[in-house]
Amino acid sequence: MIRSLSTLTFSALIGALFLGALCLIAGESPVRVVEIVIQNSMLNQEDLAVTLFYSTHLMFAATGLCLAMHAGLFPIGAEGQISISCLATTVVGLLMGPSPFGIFLALLAGPLTAAGLGAVTAYFKVKKSSHEVIVTMMLNFLSASVANYLVSHFFQSSESQNPETGTLAPAFKLFSPLFSLANTPANSSFYLAIAVCFLGWFVLSRTRWGYEIRAVGLNHSVAAHSGISRARVITTVLIVSAALAGLSSFNQILGYNLKYQVGFSADYGFLAIVVALMASRNPLFVIPASFFFAILMKGSAELDIDTDTITRDFVKIIEGFLILAFVLAQKIDLKSLFSRKRIDDESSRA
């Protein structure tokens, strides 16, 4: 807990430091940059709605990643899982129509198809010993291509110039908007995302399955001798982690857009990796870390317009620094710097 907290603050601090330095190099006042970012992400309902919408996406995917990373895995498939789950929800909704059963199926379609992708990853990992990074990377490309193909060949909306599907009936809007302003994306799946973070934390720290995940991640040989099946843990965690990323379909389709747009995702699945790392794999810290990144995403969009030298790619650079800072924070035992509770190996010997 303390370790996660210190990693979080350390990463944020380093990030801020680099941010400042970067602004100065680019000839822009860091204070002004922060001002722009905050002004355009939180200070009015319209902007805040977008920020919360982003953070909902990040929380779902990053919580799943926390679970998988605790099992010693590093899947990067959330991006593909998000787009496939959103497409599946839309397609099921379009095909089934707004009957209660159709709505129910559309609700399940997202997490279930994503879980299917997770199961494919697990199959290759467990049965074929393929590395999950490679498999999920491939599945990301595959998902994007399949989604493009399906949309352009079968579900293209006749009313739109953009590559997108037709719109679902209003009855599919299961998650109501958080703000009364028209067309704001934030919806009540935001609360679900926060609940998922708490649930993720509870599962990891308080349940048998969460314990088994941690044991396998730390030392799978000891875990095996303790009767924990690595294959079972890896399979279940990859499936659940994917299903959580698939919950993004609630936010995107059933809470906001009601249609699938090709390329709708602003790399949520990849950003979620950074969020999970920054949260030090603790789902509780995913909440502030997601919010932090959502602010950066939303706020930096205005940097193009409001400053001369800094663009929205700024966020990408910050991401890079944060990953570096995270790796650093892992190497340095921060706790030992602040606390004296260290055990001298010699003195403990009888």
């Binding site: 048998r208 314990y211 088994e212 044991a215 730390l218 001798h225 303790s226 009767g227």
Partner: peptide, 25 residues
Amino acid sequence: SDSAILDFKINDHYRLLPHYRKDFV
């Protein structure tokens, strides 16, 4: 490689024995 995970505290260490992780919660 058989019996102890160094990163575990005592509580988690005991849970390596299935006897201490019988219930889901």
